[in-house]
Write a protein that binds this DNA or RNA. Structure first.
Length: 559
RNA sequence: UGGGCCGUCGCCAAGUGGUAAGGCACCAGGUUUUGAUCCUGGCAUUCGUUGGUUCGAAUCCAGCCGGCCCAGCCA
């Protein structure tokens, strides 16, 4: 069970280089990081990158990493999200040093705000939101000072206290930092620190009617927790001067540093929370944990292992460069992990009946099938065989090219673990569709070898009809047909209509465990599969996690 | 066009003045009772570009070109 593949993140990156230097110069002694999601949605593959970075650094440097909920906007947040985020982080295999809410610091944050006011570095602005926006200027034009900018500390203190004491309506006043309305960096043009918001907070209830904003809260929360390296995505680069301004002007327990890295972009997927929401709300997927969604919960249901996700994150690296990762990297990480752990079974997803004419009707026998071809520790299971079997429709072709190593009229193939069979006759219905096959078998070839040493190129999988278990199988493919659905004017155009195909007539060999459980199976020659949450012995439902690599399909395509 | 950031193989990515790691993908072989896995070999005379500094530059300097981000009382 233990992970044999060394997950030593020996891959260096610019953030680890900075940490190495900080350690070498004794600037820091213990590395402290944090993963700070806002509990306003489900975690996705992009968050996994940040989780692996932050928790991975803490692990490798014998430091600490907190899971901190950045919950300063009560209207968007809920305990449902808090719980799902905790679950996902744990499922990925990480444990936090502590798990605070930014809202735990509201009292301290309020005190810091008062400190700023006393220093004359913050003021209560009584302009409304539209006026503030109008006076902020543009990217190329400076802003103009608020008429309330020069209120006395005394007046600001009174006003701010009154804001806190529920004496005003939402939007009537706001606390702003007094920095520079002419700054070329718009974030420094007197950013709003606190707004009045009469909303119930998932953690603090109705205790507060004013809430601090991200820029004021984040650095201070980092400082309170002793975070040494505050790692965030590139779009916050412009906020760093403000992050520093807050910490430079306040006496805090520690002095963290913000470092930015590039957000994950993956081909064929969407990671914008807003668009993910649309997929769910418009019914294009069954929910946040739909197996086609690259949410952590969706990937879990799809059959991804946490190890494969961590290994993917290791593979893509950390830089400041905007880049888009090819799907193949994720697929490879998944296959690599599943290949070593998946239990092999035979299942037929699109069945074609084969009658073996020279095999006695009342006879049955059992073969020992290896549960893993490379790992004998996985043992074997008994695979029943009888006169009538199912094979995959794709494994038969009436007019087959010479390179087709499977079954066709007059040709011989090996049934995995069992016998060589030769196709004698094709039975069709009135419509000319192939209904079944009549084959003969070579009793001498039992076990899959013949005494005369003749070679058969193809080996196909099969399931004994008499012993087969009926099941349903969900085939999944990428949700979008375009590599960059987010760039399209309307991502709906790029939706893949065939992203989920239900095969409701699958035949399983009897040794497959049907109820919902975490066993990863490889159905030989088909791919990796896992039982769905809804699966039961009475109503088995499996999800295809990933196909096997298929070089035959590639050859066929190029023809 | 104000400010910030980025540009090394098809996609990622090491490299921090001493002569281009690695992964994915791809190509060619070998093993194979999964056209899977596994194994072997191939795949950047060149680091956006042009100049400069230097015995020596992907690494330092300057210009140019291309891309991304910022005008929420969101995070």
């Amino acid at each position: 069970m233990s992970d044999s593949s060394a997950e030593t993140s020996d891959s260096s990156n610019f953030i680890r280089n900075i940490i190495d230097a900080d350690l070498a110069s004794n600037k820091v002694s213990t590395v402290v990081t944090r993963f700070p999601p806002e509990p306003n949605g489900y975690l996705h593959i992009g968050h996994a990158k940040s989780i692996c970075l932050n928790f991975g650094i803490a692990r490798d440097y014998n430091g600490r990493c907190n899971l901190r909920f950045d919950d300063t906007n009560p209207e968007k947040e809920s305990v449902e999200y808090v719980n799902s985020i905790r679950r996902d982080v744990e499922w990925l295999g990480f444990s936090w040093y502590s798990n605070p809410f930014a809202s735990d610091y509201f009292d301290q944050l309020y005190a810091y705000a008062i400190d700023l006011i006393k220093q004359g570095l913050a003021y209560v602005d009584s302009q409304n939101a539209d006026e503030i926006r109008a006076n902020r200027g543009t990217l190329t034009e400076p802003g103009v000072d608020s008429p309330y900018r020069d209120r006395s500390s005394q007046e600001n203190l009174q006003l701010f206290e009154a804001m806190r004491n529920d004496e005003y309506e939402d939007g009537e006043h706001a606390l702003r930092a007094k920095i520079d309305m002419q700054s070329p960096n718009i974030n420094m043009r007197d950013p709003v620190l606190y707004r009045i918001r009469h909303a119930t907070h998932h953690n603090t209830g109705d205790k507060w009617c004013i809430y601090p904003l991200y820029d004021f809260t984040h650095g201070l929360s980092d400082a309170i927790e002793g975070v040494t390296h505050s790692l965030c995505t590139l779009e916050f680069e412009d906020h760093r001067p403000l992050y520093d301004w807050i910490l430079d002007n306040l006496e805090t327990p520690s002095r963290p540093v913000q470092i930015e890295f590039a957000r994950l972009q993956l081909e064929y997927t969407l990671t914008s929370k807003r668009k993910l929401n649309m997929l769910v709300n418009e019914g294009h997927v069954s929910g946040w944990d739909d197996p086609r969604m690259l949410t952590i919960s969706g990937m879990r249901r799809r059959g991804f292992t946490p190890e494969s996700i961590v290994s993917f994150c290791d593979a893509i690296g950390i830089t400041k460069k905007d880049s888009t990762i090819e799907m193949g990297v994720l697929e490879n990480a998944l296959r690599e992990d599943l290949n070593v752990r998946a239990v092999r079974r035979m299942a037929v997803i699109n069945p074609l009946k084969v009658v073996i004419e020279n095999y006695p009707a009342d006879q049955e026998e059992f073969f020992d099938g290896a549960n893993h071809p490379q790992n004998p520790d996985y043992g074997t299971r008994e695979v029943p065989f009888s006169r009538e079997i199912y094979i995959e429709r794709d494994d038969f072709m009436e007019d087959a090219p010479s390179k087709f190593f499977r079954l066709s009229p007059g040709r011989e193939v090996r049934l995995r673990f069992a016998y060589y069979i030769t196709c004698k006759e094709v039975i069709k219905n009135e419509a000319g569709e192939i209904e079944s096959l009549v084959c003969s078998y070579d009793p001498e070839s039992r076990g899959g070898k013949s005494p005369d040493g003749r070679k058969v190129k193809g080996t196909i999988h099969w399931v004994s009809a008499r012993h087969a278990v009926d099941a349903r199988v969900n085939l999944y493919d990428r949700l979008f047909t375009s590599a960059n659905p987010g760039a399209a004017a309307d991502f709906h155009q790029a939706l893949n209509p065939d992203s989920n195909i239900l095969m409701d007539n699958a035949k399983f060999e009897p040794s497959i465990e049907l109820a919902n459980n975490p066993i990863a199976y490889q159905f030989e020659r088909l791919g990796y599969f896992i039982s769905d949450y809804d699966s039961s012995n009475d109503n088995p439902v499996f999800n295809r996690t990933m196909t096997l690599r298929d070089s035959w399909a590639k050859i066929e395509q190029s023809r």
